[in-house]
């Protein structure tokens, strides 16, 4: 949006102006060239290469034959890929919504001018400074029935207490969500808090004069005003969902059984351990297609329709 409004004035041309803007733009263009090349060659190029390989029968080394959709047929009857796809949906929905809710509540809590705000802010943001591997290992220990929480509570005298989600096929994916929430909520809080601090104090005063209850101000005034912050947080969290890999590897290694497998792990395993580049790239292509399908309506609404209206 911003870029469009900046560009608008320079579009109105007169000969000298165009030349001057050319002169100022040339260095900018040169400076951007390496990045543009990297984007074109590394990102777009590798993406096309991946898609191409998914139509081959490559195993250990890439091979450029053509087998049509054979790899995709195998992919969709593969238990593990289907479970991975379901898991990423469960994780994605719970992780993003959970982080937004917890992050928002923490931000509101800190925004009440509590004493020791700095301390709380650090404590809540601290998990984000951990890598997913550390997070995963720590939570693995904590949730292990024989070592962590369950043993602790039982040792305290509650013999019948059971919390074995980590080793329970049906519940294991939710332990990944819990670890993810612990890791990601702090960042969401920081973003939301920045947004809350940016809200005009006069709005609060006006609301108080009108006698509107606080919760109502939050839901009807503050949250709509926080929209850009929410979008930022969602985008950041969503990238975390797509690339979910290290947390799972550190915490459950996809187990028990295949209960916590995720697409990124499927791709990695097939590319590097199972000598099956074609099936791995087919799975990667499916991930790409999913991301595009999710993003397309948003990109359309945000840029293409907006552009069209302007013209």
């Amino acid at each position: 949006m911003e870029t469009i409004s900046i560009r608008a004035p320079s579009v109105a041309p007169s000969g000298t102006k165009t030349r001057r803007s050319m002169r100022t733009r040339l260095p900018a263009a040169i400076a951007l060239l390496p990045t543009a090349l990297v984007v074109l060659v590394v990102y777009i190029g590798c993406m096309l290469w991946t898609v191409r390989l998914s139509f081959t029968s490559s195993t250990l080394l890439p091979k450029l034959d053509w087998v049509g959709l054979a790899q995709y047929n195998r992919l969709f009857v593969n238990d593990r890929f289907v479970t991975s796809a379901e898991n990423i949906v469960i994780f994605g929905i719970l992780f993003i919504s959970g982080c937004l809710i917890i992050g928002f509540l923490l931000a509101v809590f800190i925004d009440q001018n509590v004493r020791g705000e700095g301390l709380f802010r650090t404590v809540f943001l601290y998990p984000y400074s951990m890598s997913f591997v550390v997070t995963g290992v720590a939570w693995q220990w904590f949730l292990n029935p024989g070592l962590g929480l369950q043993k602790l509570v039982r040792d305290l005298g509650f013999e019948s207490f059971t919390f074995d989600w980590l080793v329970n096929q049906k519940m294991a994916i939710y332990t990944i969500v819990i670890a993810g929430l612990w890791h990601g909520s702090g960042l969401t809080m920081a973003i939301m808090l920045a947004g809350l601090r940016g809200i005009d104090k006069d709005l609060w005063k006006a609301a108080r004069v009108d006698g509107i209850p606080t919760w109502r101000v939050y839901t009807s005034v503050v949250i709509p005003l926080l929209r850009p912050m929410i979008v930022t947080a969602v985008v950041l969290l969503a990238t975390g969902v797509v690339k979910l890999y290290d947390l799972v590897v550190a915490m459950t290694l996809g187990g028990p059984g295949i209960a916590t497998e995720v697409p990124a792990k499927f791709v990695m395993d097939h590319l590097f351990e199972r000598n099956n580049i074609a099936l791995g790239t087919a799975a990667a292509t499916m991930m790409l297609i999913t991301v595009v399908i999710v993003l397309a309506p948003w990109v359309y609404a945000r840029y293409i329709r907006a552009e069209g209206r302007r013209a």
């Binding site: 195993t59 187990g255 059984g257 097939h270 199972r274 000598n275 099956n276």
Partner: peptide, 15 residues
């Protein structure tokens, strides 16, 4: 066995 079949067997066994 090929790594690919070993992997597929591993998936079946762990399930």
């Amino acid at each position: 066995s090929t790594p690919n079949f070993s992997g597929a067997m591993q998936d079946a066994v762990t399930q």
